[in-house]
Computed example of a mutant assay.
Amino acid sequence: MLKLNVNDETSRLRAVVLGTAKSLGGTPTLADAYDPKSAEHIKAGTYPVEEDMIKEMEAVASVLMKYDVTVFRPEVIEDCNQIFARDIAFVIEDKFIKSNILPDREREIHAIDYLIDQISPAHVITLPEKVHVEGGDVMPWHDYIFVGTYTGEDYPDFITARTNKYAVEAIQELFPHREVKAFELRKSNTDAMNNALHLDCCFQPVGKDLAILHKNGFLIEEEYQWLVDHFGEDHIFEITKEEMYHMNSNIFSIAPDVVISEKGFTRLNKWLREKGITVEEVPYAQIAKQEGLLRCSTLPLIRD
């Protein structure tokens, strides 16, 4: 049996699901795009090709193996984009919580059934149908669980709104001993520069007490300010709108002092190194064209 354990974003990683870029099914039609950034690249003819994305993901797999992390991969579903493993489920403490995601993507979870079968059924949580949530919006951090959400009445109009108010309530019920802190995110179906698809698209804790943050990703200034006060200004790397667009906040921690980051994130990577963090650089710019990056394509199962 797999004994799950994830209490925060940065403790030493022992086991993870890494998505796969095999058999993506080619470039989607505009009507099938789930986010404005993919749509932008479909229109421009610059949508990434499978071969390049496979190479990018294998570079990540190599880094994980270098640090003795057990890496699970989904079984390949023909003609299905399975890169973003974080969307389909997430682990908090010893619970494996299945996401309720866009209906078109429900089959992705079955590609890791072989793994779910290794978890005690009492620890596998299926949420009620009205609860919409994706793992990119959920971050356990010490006494808190940070959750990105959108609660506007126009929620159904946004394909980019992935986590609703019922999810915030459901997570608080599952973990009554922690404080669930929700953040309203800026959503746009058409403008990738002004869309925070998930919380990890505009914020992520790193190291022991640091954070990457982008103000414009948050709809409510007081909620953004809460994070600034919580981490402290000296401990925050504020990314620009363009850096958010390129997914600078979506790196992935192997340990408090080791992260995997995109090689083009020069300003961020320099700051991380100045803070004493080892930065393992990988090429991931093609996958970034789908509005997801390193945190989005990994689903941690066990951290120390």
Rank of each mutant, 00 (worst) to 15 (best):
K3F: 02
N5P: 00
N5H: 15
V6K: 01
S11Y: 02
A21N: 09
K22D: 06
K22H: 13
G26C: 10
G26Y: 06
G26W: 07
D35R: 07
K37M: 11
E40D: 09
K43F: 05
G45L: 11
V49F: 05
M53G: 09
E56Y: 03
M57P: 01
A59N: 13
V60N: 03
Y67L: 01
V71Y: 00
D79V: 04
D79N: 15
Q82T: 14
Q82M: 14
Q82N: 09
R86M: 09
I88N: 01
I88W: 07
A89Y: 06
A89H: 08
V91L: 02
K95Y: 12
K95Q: 14
K98F: 02
R107P: 04
H110G: 08
D113L: 05
Q118F: 02
H123Y: 12
V124Q: 06
V124R: 06
T126F: 11
K130G: 01
H132V: 04
E134A: 06
G135Y: 00
D137I: 05
M139N: 06
Y150G: 02
T151Q: 14
T151G: 14
T151D: 15
P156L: 10
D157F: 15
N164D: 09
A167H: 08
E169R: 03
A170N: 08
L174P: 00
F175M: 08
V180L: 12
A182F: 04
F183I: 05
R186F: 13
R186K: 12
K187F: 14
D191Y: 10
M193A: 11
L197T: 03
D200F: 05
C202Q: 02
F203C: 08
Q204D: 04
Q204T: 13
P205W: 00
P205T: 00
L210T: 05
A211V: 05
K215G: 04
K215Q: 13
G217Q: 04
G217F: 03
G217W: 01
E221M: 04
Y224A: 11
Q225K: 15
H230T: 10
G232T: 08
G232M: 13
I236N: 03
E238D: 10
K241T: 12
E243L: 10
Y245T: 03
I254R: 00
A255N: 08
V258R: 02
S261T: 08
S261R: 04
S261E: 04
E262F: 08
G264N: 14
G264P: 05
F265L: 08
R267D: 15
W271A: 11
W271G: 04
E274H: 11
T278R: 08
E281M: 07
P283W: 06
A288Q: 12
L293H: 14
R295F: 03
R295H: 13
